[in-house]
């Protein structure tokens, strides 16, 4: 499996994504500059976390017009896997690759571990996980409050596109377990074709016991299984 990791000016999690793919999974990764026009044969594209373009205007609003995003959109249109993490999720939403938007948190910037529950396993990013499995991993964002119209949210629910929700230790979606005020405790979604996935928490920072959690590994292993299927 070859993973292309896009770096925008202001990205800061591209190294973590590289570490997860290369050191923990033992797979190939290639760093892609946002001005490139070539995904270099990547099977999977990761849009990493950070503050692309300083989050000017709105998080992700300017990054979505970076030259490489045309290739990323074409890759997604052909069924290629695109994974947006944190700022990458914001960019994917702004680019229209995923439904909805990420708004300013209800209570400021949050940097903390959260627990998310896997809602569906029929995607390339969750296939090895179990429905209802709870994963602990960090969040670090100021604009992660998932929002969409009620119609869109209902459609996402009925089509099984809500992949992750914030839950408490008992696996329940409560107000207290929701770190940013996201509608319906949504932490991550996929597109209708299920090949573009976005989430606010950082699975790539939860792949090494040294960092406190390896719960993110199951998601990266899912990518690997899909790539070799």
């Amino acid at each position: 499996m070859k993973v292309g990791i896009v770096t925008f000016p202001g990205s800061n999690c591209e190294g973590d994504a590289f570490h997860a793919v290369v050191d923990q999974l033992g797979e190939q990764a290639v760093m892609l500059w946002h001005k490139d026009h070539d995904l270099q044969g990547s099977d999977v594209v990761i849009l990493p976390g950070g503050f692309a373009y300083g989050d000017y205007l709105r998080a992700g609003a300017i990054a979505r017009f970076s030259p490489i995003m045309k290739e990323v959109a074409a890759h997604a249109a052909k069924g290629g896997v695109v994974l947006g993490i944190c700022n990458g999720f914001q960019i994917a939403c702004e680019a229209g690759l995923l439904p909805g938007a990420l708004l300013r948190n209800d209570v400021g910037y949050r940097s903390m571990p959260v627990t998310i529950r896997v809602e569906h396993t029929n995607t390339t990013f969750t296939s090895v996980a179990k429905v209802g499995q709870c994963l602990t991993m960090p969040i670090a964002h100021g604009e992660g409050r998932y929002a969409a119209s009620d119609d869109v949210l209902d459609q996402l629910e009925s089509d099984g596109q809500v992949l992750f929700r914030y839950v408490n230790a008992a696996g329940e979606t409560t107000v207290d377990a929701n770190p940013n005020g996201a509608m319906r405790n949504i932490a991550g979604v996929c597109n209708a074709a299920r090949n573009v996935i976005g989430l606010m928490p950082h699975p790539e920072r939860a792949v090494d016991l040294l960092l406190g959690s390896i719960d993110g590994l199951v998601l990266f292993e899912s990518l690997l299984v899909a790539a070799h299927a």
């Binding site: 205007l57 017009f65 939403c93 938007a101 708004l103 119209s149």
Partner: peptide, 8 residues
């Protein structure tokens, strides 16, 4: 196209 987010 850019300055406002049509969703929010």
């Amino acid at each position: 196209r850019l300055l406002a987010n049509p969703v929010t």
